[in-house]
C-alpha cells in the first residue's frame, strides 16, 4: 500500500484533467444557462458559437505568430483572445439583429426559437468549416508544462509523477477570474441585477423601466465572451475541431440541466459534476488501485468501468438520474 503515490496518480490522471475539463464545461454551460434565463430558449447553436469564437482567436494567434509576437511561456492565444471575443460578439449581435429579434417581437414560443437556433447552428457550423476547414488545429504554443513529471519526481522523490500542463493551469485560473467577474457583474452591478430581474419576471422588469433590448444585447455580449473563452480553453487543452465543438453541446447541456437551467451557480456545479463523472468512469483505475490496495486485492484488468468512447453515455446517464429524481436540477432553476 502506498497512499501517497496513489494520490499523486489520481491527481495526475483524474483530478487535474477533470478540474480543467470541468472549468471548460462550466463556462460553456454558463452561456447556455444565461440564454435560457434571459432569452428563454435552449440554444443549439452554442457549440458552434464556441467554435466560431475559437476560430477567430486561432486566426489572430496565427497572425501574431507570423509577426513574431508572443507571450513567452504563455500561449499566444491569450493575446488573441480579446479579438476572438470581439469577433464572436459581432457575430452574435448580428445574428440577434437579423434573426432572433424578429421572433422576439412576434412573441414566438420558445420551441420556435429553438428551431431557429438549429438554423443558426447550421450557418455557424458551415461558416466555421468554410473559413478554417473541418480539420484538427493545434494552436497552443509556449511552455508545455508548469510542472512536468520529471521535475515533480525530482522534487518529491516519489515513484509517480505529476504533470500540470500550462493549458490546464491557464484554464483554471481564467475560469476562476471569468466566473468571479460574471458573478460580481450579476450580483453587484445595476445592469447585472436588471438582467436577473428580467430573467426572473419579464413583465415586472418592463414595469420597472428595464429596457429588454438592452438586457438582451448585454446577454449576447456576455455569452460571446463566455463561449469564446470556453472554446479557446478547450482548444488549448485538447485541440480545435469544429465537429468536436458541435459535440460538446451534449455535455454542456447536460451540465446546465443537471445544475438547473437558468441558474448560473448550477451551471458551474453541473459542469464539474459531469466532468468528474466522465473522467472517473472512463479512467482505468488499475494503477491507483495497485497503490492504494493491498497487493492481494490489486485488480488484474484495467479496472476501467467504461471505455472512453462512452463518455457521452456518462453525461447522459447522470442527466437522466437528475431528471428522474430532481427535475429542476441541483440548484432549482426555472421549472417553466
Amino acid at each position: 500500500m502506498d497512499l501517497l503515490n496513489a494520490f499523486v496518480t489520481l491527481s495526475n490522471f483524474v483530478l487535474i484533467p477533470a478540474i480543467a475539463y470541468g472549468s471548460q464545461l462550466a463556462l460553456g454551460a454558463l452561456g447556455v444557462t444565461l440564454i435560457y434565463g434571459i432569452l428563454r430558449f435552449s440554444n443549439f447553436a452554442h457549440g458552434d458559437t464556441m467554435a466560431f469564437g475559437t476560430m477567430v482567436t486561432i486566426l489572430f494567434t496565427w497572425l501574431f505568430q507570423s509577426w513574431g509576437l508572443s507571450l513567452g511561456p504563455v500561449p499566444t492565444a491569450l493575446l488573441a483572445l480579446p479579438f476572438g471575443i470581439l469577433g464572436c460578439m459581432a457575430l452574435l449581435l448580428f445574428t440577434d439583429r437579423v434573426v432572433y429579434k424578429f421572433y422576439r417581437e412576434q412573441k414566438a414560443k420558445p420551441v420556435i426559437l429553438v428551431i431557429v437556433s438549429l438554423g443558426v447552428m447550421f450557418i455557424m457550423n458551415g461558416l466555421v468549416r468554410f473559413i478554417i476547414g473541418p480539420d484538427d488545429q493545434r494552436f497552443s504554443d509556449g511552455e508545455r508544462f508548469i510542472v512536468s513529471v520529471r521535475t515533480f519526481r525530482e522534487m518529491t522523490g516519489l515513484e509517480e509523477g505529476l504533470a500540470i500542463k500550462t493549458t490546464q493551469g491557464i484554464t483554471v485560473i481564467t475560469a476562476v477570474i471569468v466566473v468571479a467577474a460574471l458573478f460580481w457583474f450579476l450580483n453587484r452591478t445595476r445592469t447585472g441585477k436588471s438582467m436577473r430581474a428580467y430573467s426572473d419576471n419579464e413583465d415586472l422588469a418592463l414595469l420597472s423601466g428595464i429596457n429588454p433590448e438592452r438586457v438582451v444585447m448585454i446577454t449576447w455580449l456576455i455569452v460571446a465572451a463566455l463561449a469564446t473563452v470556453a472554446g479557446v480553453l478547450y482548444g488549448l487543452d485538447k485541440s480545435f475541431k469544429p465537429f468536436t465543438y458541435f459535440q460538446l453541446l451534449l455535455p454542456i447541456f447536460a451540465s446546465a440541466i443537471v445544475g438547473g437551467l437558468g441558474s448560473p451557480l448550477g451551471a458551474i456545479a453541473g459542469g464539474f459534476t459531469i466532468a468528474f463523472s466522465e473522467v472517473m468512469v472512463t479512467y482505468a483505475w488499475k494503477k491507483v488501485a495497485g497503490y492504494a490496495l493491498p497487493e492481494s486485492l490489486a485488480p488484474d484488468g484495467l479496472a476501467q468501468l467504461l471505455s472512453t468512447d462512452y463518455k457521452f453515455a456518462v453525461s447522459f446517464v447522470i442527466l437522466l438520474i437528475v431528471l428522474l429524481f430532481r427535475p429542476t436540477g441541483l440548484f432549482a432553476g426555472k421549472s417553466v
Partner: peptide, 24 residues
Amino acid sequence: KTALGLRSDYLAIATLGIAEIIIA
C-alpha cells in the same frame, strides 16, 4: 418512458444523448 412527461426541452436533450450513445 423516462423523458416524456417532463418538459419538452428535456426530451430534446434525452434524444440528443441517446443518439450519441447508440452511435458509440
